[in-house]
């Protein structure tokens, strides 16, 4: 990473953060990581009717070196898992991951020997997108939510602060099994 990580906290850093976030979110290059059914819906999203080009994202890169978003579209098998991690490692920072569909998010209906029960066992996931497969509109919604996240991402000392806070919140969070009310 460059100079922006070394900026002192304060007015300059937050301004650079906003500028960098805006630039980054406006032109996200997804890597083609189509695996199964969801890949077809991902292609549909890029095609005429849904037209992902409206969000500056129609250029799916064949090489992970040129991509900063990995849309894991489909079920990840045990055999594919090392490949997936390798492709992720080849992507330059900053990078994001959308786990598209239930199979990628949690294994879905394929709770068996062959499928990794959630791609978050292998790579950190930013957005979980449910559906089997999710409609193109849902994928676009996930992408817009990711854009918001990218826009609001922190840099330098602020990023360290944010990571610390997130860690704290995760440690204090109730396990799902103890949640009450609507979250149950």
């Amino acid at each position: 990473m460059g100079l922006e990580e070394k900026l002192p906290s304060g007015f300059v850093l937050t301004t650079v953060e906003q500028a960098a976030g805006w630039v980054r979110k406006s032109s996200v290059f997804p890597a083609t990581f189509g695996l199964a059914c969801c890949a077809i819906e991902m292609m549909t999203t890029g095609a005429g009717r849904y037209d992902l080009a409206r969000f500056g994202m129609e250029v799916f890169r064949g090489s992970p070196r040129q991509a900063d978003l990995m849309i894991v579209a489909g079920r990840v098998s045990q055999k594919m898992a090392p490949v997936l991690r390798q492709v992720y490692d080849q992507m330059p920072n900053p990078k994001w991951v959308i786990s598209m569909g239930v199979c990628a998010s949690s294994g879905g209906m394929f709770n068996n020997y062959a499928i990794v029960q959630g791609v978050d066992h292998i790579v950190p996931v930013d957005i979980y997108l449910p559906g089997c497969p999710p409609r193109p509109e849902m994928l676009m919604d996930a992408i817009l939510k990711l854009h918001q996240k990218i826009q609001g991402s922190k840099l330098g000392v602020n990023a360290e602060e944010a990571a610390r806070e997130a860690e704290e919140a995760a440690l204090n969070a109730l396990p799902l099994i103890e949640m009450k009310g609507l979250m149950r």
Partner: peptide, 30 residues
């Protein structure tokens, strides 16, 4: 090949005959 092996045939053996359609429809998804 085998990078998308899903074990659907094995999964079918643990569901009812009708539920089987839910699995087989995801084999060749086109």
């Amino acid at each position: 090949i085998g990078y998308l092996h899903t074990g659907i045939e094995k999964n079918l053996e643990f569901r009812s005959w009708t539920q089987g359609t839910t699995f087989v429809t995801r084999m060749d998804y086109l």
